[in-house]
Lab assay of single mutants.
Amino acid sequence: TRVETATETAWISLVTALHLVLGLSAVLGLLLLRWQFPAHYRRLRHALW
């Protein structure tokens, strides 16, 4: 049971790290898009909202 718990903890930390990385890359990508294509971003936002 001790090994299982350790594996579970490792998986949880791995998944958390993955989610953090994905979230950060998504935010960075959005910022980059907004910085590179302001007109396109505004049009996209206008279409979405």
Rank of each mutant, 00 (worst) to 15 (best):
L31A: 14
E4F: 11
S13T: 13
V15R: 01
A10Q: 12
L48I: 15
L14E: 00
R43Y: 06
S25F: 05
H40I: 08
A47G: 08
L24M: 13
Q36Y: 15
P38H: 15
L24N: 00
V21N: 03
V3Y: 00
L33W: 06
E8R: 05
L32R: 06
A47K: 14
L30A: 12
H46V: 08
L14S: 01
H40S: 09
L33A: 14
R42G: 11
R45L: 09
S13D: 06
L14R: 01
L33N: 07
S13K: 04
Q36G: 15
T16I: 14
R2N: 11
L28M: 11
Q36I: 15
R45Y: 13
R34M: 07
W35R: 15
S13H: 08
W11C: 05
Y41K: 08
H19D: 00
A39C: 08
W35H: 15
A47N: 10
E8C: 05
P38K: 14
A17G: 07
V21M: 10
T1D: 07
V27R: 05
S25I: 06
A10C: 00
R34A: 02
R43P: 09
L30I: 13
A39F: 11
V3A: 04
V3H: 00
L44D: 03
L32M: 06
G29V: 14
R45C: 05
L44C: 15
A10P: 04
V3I: 14
W35V: 15
T5N: 02
F37L: 11
R42I: 07
Y41I: 14
L28G: 03
Y41T: 14
R43K: 10
L48E: 07
L24R: 06
E8K: 07
V21S: 11
Q36P: 09
W35P: 15
T1S: 11
T5V: 02
L32I: 05
A17F: 08
L28Y: 07
T1P: 03
F37G: 02
L32F: 04
V21P: 03
L44M: 13
L44R: 06
L20Y: 03
I12A: 08
I12M: 08
W11D: 01
Y41V: 15
R43H: 00
I12E: 01
H19L: 05
E8Q: 02
R2S: 13
Y41A: 15
Q36C: 07
S13A: 12
E8P: 09
V15L: 10
G29R: 03
T7D: 07
T16D: 00
T1V: 12
L48N: 05
V27W: 10
